[in-house]
Design a protein around this nucleic acid. Structure first.
Lengths: 223, 223
DNA sequence: TGTACATCAGTGAACGCGCGTTCACTGATGTAC
DNA sequence: TGTACATCAGTGAACGCGCGTTCACTGATGTAC
């Protein structure tokens, strides 16, 4: 502890506690006592609790965002000119998430859970922060989704993207609990990687469903 | 106000505020001031804030649960002996939800949002309460799902049910916001009924996706 | 019919608590001359 | 090399606030005799 590691200790503790309990149910006193630092250190280093939440997200989202951009570059290059398929696009996303360098073996679970919470807990400041900071990779993902589903109307696509986000965010935010239940009920252990591997075909199929409301539209097969 | 309507006024106000802001972000002072009743009245009539949350859910879930049981009875009778299809099962559920007698025109949105919040906000007491009170219709729905997807392994079915729940809960809990965004972005007004009508084919397709992990399993077509 | 008592819905004010934040302060290290 | 000052990370204690809950109390209505 020669040079200050207080900032990292706070981020580590906050990340774990936020993932376990959500944002407003985690107090600064819990965070600082887990981190073994003074209560006032959070406001000293970050300014406020909200700023700490932003810092926790920035620490893992910025490298993720970079990894994702490279994965999209890679994908578009491999497709040279032709739009990537829906399946390829979703895999680029999920594999970037799963392959992220982790600080420890719980890292991927925490990452998933935090991403899920960001969507399901209605923290206005957080949504605003994420939209500002990560609009580029998000917009690029949306563009790829659009090109991969030219058969859908804009309205259909809009709703199905929301359904996808919901399935993903919810599963991510409960992934630990869901894996535990499965372990107890059926005695099957599952890795986060397997869970994500099951999620992708579900999303792809739902995204490309033939809507009974407009049976005339034909469904192209996935590559 | 000859006879006491304080209980109903509290329930009405709590329902709306919980739907708007979530449970822990809504204080008893907000609820009682909106309801125009004394702060102490909540603890007088309900005993605690948690018991009030339970009462809010019981007020709409109990009639919903009855409607749903009748819809399932109806469905199983129409199928006499043969298991209902996935599509029929999902429709029985969503149509029961959408056709519920509502106290007002915002009723269905509030109902959706509360159901979504129950899943996404980690209120342990609420999950326990709901599991105790409504285990029968829930178990019956799960059994129907199982019979409608005999081609899936238990593990596959488990995960896909979670994905369905996620897409549904998330969409429900954000339905107002999502419809507003769509209105602003594409100038399209959507009813909750239309939203649900779009959700069902998405879920059914995802549920019956051919998983690349086990390509040997063939996918039966839906009736 | 009148009186005494019980029950019930509701009230106003206070309680203790945990919260995020602030502030005056300390002690170590770096910098200027 | 020594002294004065500035900067910085961190601290201990307190601040004001909003929270859920409690409690003694009121006033209307019902019941027994």
């Amino acid at each position: 502890m020669a040079q200050s590691d207080t900032v990292d200790r706070i981020l580590d503790a906050a990340e774990v506690l936020f993932a376990e309990r959500g944002f407003s149910e985690t107090s600064l006193r819990m965070i600082t006592s887990k981190a073994g630092v003074n209560l006032a250190a959070v406001n000293y280093h970050f300014g406020s609790k909200n700023a700490l939440i932003h810092a926790v997200f920035a620490r893992f989202l910025t490298p993720f965002s970079d990894t994702l951009e490279r994965a999209f570059d890679d994908l578009e290059q491999r497709c040279n000119g032709k739009p990537p398929t829906l399946d390829q696009t979703l895999r680029a996303l999920t594999e970037s998430a799963v392959r992220m360098p982790q600080r420890n073996d719980r890292g991927i679970s925490i990452f998933m859970r935090l991403l899920g919470l960001a969507y399901t807990q209605s923290q206005g400041h957080l949504r605003k922060f994420l939209e500002q900071e990560y609009s580029q990779p998000f917009g690029r993902f949306m563009r790829l989704l659009k090109e991969a589903t030219p058969q859908l109307t804009a309205v259909d696509r809009y709703w199905r993207i929301q359904f996808m986000l919901g399935a993903t965010a919810f599963t991510m935010s409960s992934s630990d609990a869901l894996r535990d239940i499965l372990q107890n009920k059926l005695g099957v252990a599952t890795t986060v990687q397997e869970m994500v591997a099951r999620l992708v075909p579900f999303l792809a199929a739902g995204m490309q469903a033939t809507d009974p409301m407009q049976l005339a539209v034909s469904k192209p097969s996935v590559a």
